[in-house]
Amino acid sequence: MVEWMSRVKSRDVVAAVLILIPFFFLFDIPSYNTVNPEWGGVPFFWWYQLVWLVICGVLFFTAANLLGRKS
């Protein structure tokens, strides 16, 4: 177990956290299942989730670069 843990690199941990962030926020449906604040007439529920697509792209790309780096 200890040996297994010592093989986990810190950048893998950072990558895992980056990947898990959007899961945490998107699972919290009550936090965004509202009409306001609207954006250009689009209810919050709809545009908030579109914004998460962009955030996911940034977080996952960062995580992919961390995971892909050779030690």
């Binding site: 959007p22 899961f23 998107l26 579109l50 996911c56 996952f60 995580a63 995971l67 892909g68």
Partner: peptide
């Protein structure tokens, strides 16, 4: 109809799973 907007978080998250598993 808002229910079927689940497709958005679905495509947001599926790639997070894929970058861990598929390589």
């Amino acid at each position: 109809g808002a229910f079927y907007f689940f497709a958005v978080p679905y495509v947001a998250l599926t790639f997070g799973i894929a970058i861990v598993v598929m390589p």
